[in-house]
Design a binder for these strands. Structure first.
Lengths: 239, 239
DNA sequence: AACAAACCGGAAAGCCCGATCCGTTTCCTG
DNA sequence: CAGGAAACGGATCGGGCTTTCCGGTTTGTT
């Protein structure tokens, strides 16, 4: 991924994703890059509830500069996590390429959860939807579609319980986010144990009945609501 | 202690739990009850991040009245959840009385998680520690001790995996809190499925190795930090 | 070199929060 | 029933947050 490309119009550097705007002034483009890098650091460390002011401090720019480039916090979030979402979608493709369906399935789950652990902002993202950021949601949908295939393959191989559904991944991501947010850096590896418990439970054979999973629509509604409250301060806050 | 004062109010209603104070005026006692009842409602619905103002509104009293009875929000929380903590500790005792160790073990886990689901404030509490509220922490420690016995019995019966530890319950409580906070009332039963997956995984025989659980000290540190950030505003807020 | 447009950054507006102050009301007692 | 202490409650403080405004600075061009 060629970041800091010298030629201004190679990829769209317009103020907003609609690339149509006039070329940016050099200082503007430089600051835009600094802001995104700073936001990546701060969101990764503190989660999406980190303040715009802390991002500005990290970037060494004024608060207004951030809001000029990203009129709302949600847009900065979308810009910062575009590549993470790509990595997320790509992880699906790689997992599908794994000759062992069960390895692919479990490896994918562990990788996604590891991404949550490595990036607190990403963890928050996975439990939210951003109807306003289409590219982000398109990537999410693409990854979700790939995960459906992963499930089919793993079930066909007989190693994944038949009653597993894609909503169980969402559930696990929410649960993992809860562990990560509660433990913070006090127990940075605790999440691995949760994921291991869950994966062993997903493995065939069926060991007992399960309550019905939530409806897709209900989960979507929950994620939509979460993103609405993003501007409000957030859950666990340390430091 | 000898009550020399007119004992129209037989039960000691001292301002703070240390009961030593002079008898309260009738309106003060009435308001104190209203405040606790209102806080129970509001915290249960919105979680511990609910504002003191909203509790005051629900109770029909002024904001100052709340702070006169409970000089800090943490004290109100402790007062409100004293009985929930008792129920929590008592659930341990009842589970221990179950003749089937596995039933007792799983029933206890399901009941505690159900308590989290039924009371958003309780869910928050279970991932925090309040070093300033000794009675609360004493009850928590008592329940924890009982849970250790439950584990022993379930392991002795051969139905609980040998590598299960008490820290796995903490992990599950944090995970459950994550699901509850993410789903909210959009998918109010989603948590049941998470708990079912976990319980089935806890059941013997061992199906594979697990990463080491976090240290007790690390989990305590995590819970201690969480309670510090309680005063800060919190996650999704609707209404 | 010089000018206009674009851009910057700090200060301020408006909104929440927990916590406090102080004039007013209520209760208990003598 | 009257006086004083105790309790009440709304306004207010101090702080954090997102977002906006505006005077000063940088940039690119002529």
């Amino acid at each position: 991924m060629g970041m800091t490309s010298r030629d201004q119009n190679a990829h769209d550097t317009g103020g907003t994703p609609d690339s149509a705007g006039p070329p940016m002034r050099s200082d503007a483009e430089r600051n835009r890059g600094r802001i995104i890098a700073a936001a990546r650091t701060v969101f990764g460390r503190d989660g999406l509830h980190a303040s715009m002011a802390s991002v500005a401090r990290e970037a060494g720019v004024g608060i207004a500069t951030i809001f000029r480039h990203f009129p709302a916090k949600e847009e900065l979030v979308a810009a910062v996590f575009a590549d993470r979402m790509e990595a997320y979608a790509q992880a699906t493709a790689e997992a599908l390429a794994n000759p062992d369906p069960w390895d692919g399935f479990t490896g994918y789950i562990q990788e996604v959860c590891a991404m949550q652990a490595a990036d607190r902002g990403f963890a928050d993202m996975m439990t939210m939807s951003f109807p306003g950021a289409q590219p982000l949601e398109a990537l999410r949908a693409q990854a979700y579609q790939g995960f459906l295939e992963l499930i089919d393959h793993a079930k066909d191989s007989g190693q994944l319980r038949e009653d597993f559904t894609s909503r169980d991944l969402v559930l696990l991501l929410m649960a993992n986010a809860g562990v990560l947010s509660a433990t913070g850096d006090a127990a940075p590896d605790a999440w691995r144990r949760l994921v291991a418990w869950m994966i062993q439970s997903f493995q065939a054979p069926v060991r007992g009945p399960l309550p019905e999973p939530p409806e897709d629509a209900a989960l979507y509604e929950a994620m939509r609501r979460a993103s609405h409250g993003m501007n409000s301060p957030a859950t666990g806050k340390q430091h």
